[in-house]
Design a protein around this nucleic acid. Structure first.
Length: 442
RNA sequence: GGGACCGUAGCGCAGUUGGUUAGCGCGUCUCCCUGUCACGGAGAAGGUCGCGGGUUCGAGUCCCGUCGGUCCCGCCA
């Protein structure tokens, strides 16, 4: 008999069907018992004879043939998409037995410490609440693609093995490359700029690698970078304008397609009222000083505490949980960042900050070959290492800009997760590559 | 790289000013249960309290070391 998806059982009342999935829980009442069965579409309650399910355990993979019945009024479960029906099992076929679970998967929440959650990733990812994170992430990435494709952007694939540091300074992973040394790319930055010379408007969904020796709740050694870049900008502010469009699109898609997932976490997408507030770094610092008395003026960047404070301000003052901070100091930004012609100490760059941390970073780039060479010189970056990149400018690149989004950060903050590792399927950090590094030999 | 905190059963936790046989919830196993949906009820198994040393009549508890982990800062997406 052909397999029916669990959610489709709602339309099969009175019919005999066959469903397959994983056992979530067994509620044994002696002569009768209930199984909750889950497949990719949802969960259904199966009514069974007690003797038939004595050996059935959570995560066993089974197929059930039976009759779809509507439940009596008083037995309807309004928390379940299939709560008005149940399946009366006639035949139970065990495809695969699961080993005894190391923890309880049946509850609404998966109450585990982070190391346990990650040590058992193939199992914990199956939990509805964990699964929901990656459904949201898929929609975040898809919305990014859609928003840009609709604006005539072209997707390209950036390499991740690179010859030298992308942005100078930051820590990178070396790779043994035949008899030479290569690195894992920190960002597709240079390639997306080159691609502006090809397609004008480009984006890429790629991986970025950072060997920063930092263990925090918002850093990964490998993360998903949503990068875009576009040419022929008339004004630098077109860049944050586009970033704003993209994040709004991400929110609207998540809201539209992830209602159930948001509900599981009891959250909504961040509130935005109209246009995002957009202020210069120095203005932000003035506000923070006025509000807290902290001496932040003149600092080259916002500390995490400052970021929390300024998002709080944006919420109170503008009803927006997101804010765009612009004009970071030239000294703090990479060599390709465009200095403000009216104030060369600051750049035409921005961060999009939400719920207390950076989500996006971007800005206008230097597109003049000579100016770029000078900027590299000032930053102590050797142009010799960037010959291929520099060709793009040598042979004419229009005024351009772009931004990058951390997909895990966006996912994390939409759902209110406390650690970015929860928003990464198989997080890599200083202490883990699938398994804890402390448990393997060097 | 700097700092703070935490390691007690498979999992999540409690354990008082140091005091006798180290507890609770979930899970597991046995038994009971025809309407539960985190089902319920009765019982059982499961721990050298991360490891090493010290103080003490006595250490899960205090001290030192060590290993493992979490969080904050710097840096960033």
């Amino acid at each position: 008999m052909e397999r029916t998806l669990i959610l489709d059982c709602n339309n099969k009342v009175g019919q005999e069907i066959r469903v397959c999935g994983w056992v979530q829980t067994r509620r044994d009442h002696g002569k009768i018992a209930f199984l909750d069965l889950m497949d990719r579409s949802g969960i259904i309650q199966v009514f069974c004879r007690g003797e038939d399910v004595k050996e059935i355990h959570p995560q066993d993979v089974i197929c059930i043939t039976g009759l779809v019945n509507s439940r009596p009024e008083n037995l309807i479960n309004s928390n379940l998409a299939t709560g008005k029906i149940e399946l009366h099992a006639k035949q139970i076929e065990v495809l695969v037995k699961a080993a005894e679970l190391p923890f309880d998967m049946g509850g609404k929440d998966l109450d585990l410490q982070l190391p346990t959650l990650l040590d058992h990733r193939p199992l914990t990812l199956r939990h509805p609440k964990v699964k929901a994170i990656f459904k949201v992430q898929e929609v975040v990435i898809d919305a990014f693609r859609k928003a840009l494709t609709e604006k005539d952007f072209i997707e390209f694939q950036a390499p991740t093995i690179v010859p030298a540091a992308t942005e100078g300074g930051a820590e990178i992973f070396p790779v043994d490359y035949y008899q030479y040394k290569a690195y894992l790319g920190q960002s597709p930055q240079l390639y997306k700029q080159i691609m502006v010379g090809v397609f004008e408007r480009v984006f890429t969904v790629g991986r970025a690698y950072r060997a920063e020796p930092s263990v925090t709740t918002r850093h990964l050694s490998e993360y998903i970078s949503l990068d875009c870049e576009f040419g022929f900008i008339e004004s630098w502010s077109e860049v944050p304008d586009l970033a704003e469009d993209v994040i709004k699109r991400i929110f609207s898609e998540v809201e539209k397609r992830c209602g159930r997932e948001l509900e599981l976490y009891g959250v909504g997408v961040p509130q935005i009222a109209g246009k995002l507030p957009r202020i210069k770094l120095t203005e932000a610092q003035q506000i923070i000083k006025t509000r807290t008395g902290r001496e932040v003026i003149g600092e080259p960047d916002l500390s995490p505490e400052d970021e929390r404070e300024i998002t709080e301000w944006a919420k109170e003052k503008h009803g927006s949980e997101l804010i765009i901070i612009t004009h970071y100091p030239t000294s703090k930004r990479p060599f390709y960042t465009y200095p403000d012609p009216e104030d060369p100490e600051h750049t035409l760059s921005f961060d999009l900050i939400g719920r207390g941390v950076e989500w996006f970073t971007g800005g206008q780039r230097i597109n003049d070959h000579q100016q770029l060479l000078e900027s590299m010189k000032k930053k102590g970056v050797n142009p010799e290492n960037f010959q291929l990149y520099l060709q793009a400018f040598q042979y004419g690149l229009p005024p351009e800009g772009g931004f990058a989004i951390g997909a895990e950060r966006v996912t994390m903050h939409i759902l209110g997760l406390s650690n970015i590792r929860e928003a990464s399927l198989f997080p890599r950090d200083m202490e883990r590559v699938d398994v804890r590094l402390s448990t393997i030999k060097k």
